[in-house]
């Protein structure tokens, strides 16, 4: 399963960076969302893959997954919502104030 997960992380990163390199705010925000997915999964799998081994303490448990990356990613997911929300509002404000949604003011395409 590891190669597939790695491929997912890679593709999500590619999509994230490609979209972040676009010239309009909305794709950039989508790109950031993709990059957040990739980073969160990356940190999560740094605890290595475990199937059917939740981090719930139980006398009958045969083993546990690594709880630490999970705790870190959990808060990261919530924080990235906050960050996305701020960016969405900023892009909305820029669109309403200036009448366009270009990321770079002087575009040299």
């Amino acid at each position: 399963m590891e190669p597939l997960i790695a491929a997912t992380i890679g593709l999500l990163t590619t999509a994230g960076i490609y979209l972040m390199l676009r010239a309009r705010t909305f794709p950039v925000i989508l790109g950031l969302t993709f990059l957040s997915y990739a980073v969160n999964i990356f940190i999560f799998v740094s605890g290595r893959l475990a199937v059917n081994l939740p981090a719930i303490i139980d006398k009958a448990a045969t083993g546990y997954t690594d709880p630490l990356p999970q705790a870190l990613v959990l808060t990261a997911i919530v924080i990235s919502f906050g960050m996305t929300a701020v960016l969405v509002l900023m892009s909305l404000g820029a669109w309403l104030t200036t009448g366009h949604d270009r990321v770079d003011l002087e575009d040299s395409q």
Binding site: F44, A50, V51, N52, L53, P54, A55, T65, Q70, L74
Partner: peptide
């Protein structure tokens, strides 16, 4: 869910 992270 599959990778043992119900909280996530």
């Amino acid at each position: 869910v599959w990778l043992s992270a119900p909280d996530l």
